[in-house]
Design a protein around this nucleic acid. Structure first.
Lengths: 231, 231
DNA sequence: TGCTATGGTGTGAAAAATACAATAAGTCCT
DNA sequence: AGGACTTATTGTATTTTTCACACCATAGCA
């Protein structure tokens, strides 16, 4: 084998940390591997990138095969390429995270998985490959990004209450002290891109909360006026 | 060729955006390509990753071959993998940026280059491959990172004046208004990890400035007390 | 010695962040 | 109908941070 050929004895994959928000908590979607290596272990959903496929497309494909969802928020985080990270050869992987709204779809295990299931973050341990490290990086990235970009909304249904939104931030940021309710509402409403729907919660055994939704146009306007999202 | 084999008809490279600060300006080190494709064009220094080489090691190697420097600040930024980004095959590239102190070394063009030269950012245009896009990503990253981590010092000699430091920030951030001198000094000194050397500038035709240096231990202490670097 | 260039310093006003608690609007139960 | 329960909603006073701003000091040099 020539020297040049040896450079091409390698492959790349994408792995996707899929975040969801359910039961008041941040969760991630893991698959149980159906094939060696690490057969039976929990792992991040991922796949090799096809020869004629862009990286972002591959990450979208993995997500769609698993959830049926398209057009959700997806962000490249970091590439992991230790020489021995994959037991079968030189495979580097490009890690992505995505944010999905758990309520409106059902998980259908793709070909590469026996089983797919939502996990609470605190229950996750001992994943296949270097996936724990990948998860850490993505979680760290998420924590930063939710404070500097209006991403939280991607994890909620189109209409949500301010309490749900705050609970989401409390869960994602996992700070020693919860955010102050009054200050949180003041701040997020003052940015002016949450619009009050003409609706309230239904079926709750207490005072129903107003529903709000994220107005993308108003957010663009907010940016154009020179402001920055910052929580 | 089997389907599995086709996944391995690919390679990966690293590309390095090397930032330096000289003549009061932010600069980047580019090479003029000595071989096809894009022979003669200016490009980011980069190379294929060896089969038994970690990604970070490859980025360090590229930097060292070009500058002779080791142990400088290096950070992975993003991976670029469009199907057609490389005319000779499927090659994805992992982009890094590094920060070097221009004053203490000389550039020695490596094997992959005819010529290496520092460029002012405003003079850079029409690089080989997708290197303009890579540069944009790295510059954006640098602008964010210098405000949230004590990276600026990596671009300066060990002893520097506060004016030099501010000039560096003005140059990197490139804001419509320069930073205010008094507020800048107040803020950076209040963090307490810049220590005054027992020296002043020499050979300047005006009042000589005090020299300061970055004290890593004091910075750790600053972090342990729960503070965050933020400019 | 005076001209020129950059170094170095403090204060007041405005804006933003923070801490904090009482009333409102529903359901559920008796 | 009334009371208990649960979560929703709202404002103010204090502290902290940010911002705007101008003058004297100290060196080299002619």
């Amino acid at each position: 084998m020539s020297e040049v050929e040896s450079f091409f004895k390698s492959a790349f994959s994408v792995d996707n940390v899929i975040f969801g928000f359910d039961e008041g908590e941040l969760k991630i979607l893991l698959i149980q591997r159906g094939a060696a290596p690490y057969k039976g272990k929990w792992a991040l959903p991922g796949d090799l990138v096809y020869p004629n496929e862009d990286l972002d497309d591959a990450a979208e494909r993995v997500l769609e095969q698993l959830t049926g969802l398209r057009g959700v928020y997806l962000e490249q985080v970091k590439t992991f390429g230790s020489v021995n990270r994959h037991p079968l050869g030189r495979v580097i992987t490009i890690a992505y995270f995505s944010l999905v709204n758990v309520s409106n779809y059902t998980v259908t295990p793709a070909s590469f998985a026996q089983l797919a299931k939502w996990h609470r973050l605190s229950d996750v341990k001992d994943l296949a490959f270097d996936h724990n490290e990948i998860l850490d990086s993505c979680l760290k990235r998420l924590k930063r990004k939710v404070r500097t970009a209006p991403l939280g909304f991607e994890l909620l249904p189109p209409k949500f209450t301010l309490s749900e939104l705050q609970q989401l931030y409390d869960s994602v940021l996992d700070l020693p002290k919860k955010l102050d309710k009054r200050n949180f509402r003041k701040k997020i409403l003052s940015m002016g891109f949450l619009v009050e729907c003409e609706e309230v919660q239904e079926g709750v055994p207490h005072r129903p909360a107003k529903l709000y939704s994220f107005d993308k146009e108003k957010y663009e306007q907010f940016l154009n006026e020179g402001y920055v999202f910052d929580l």
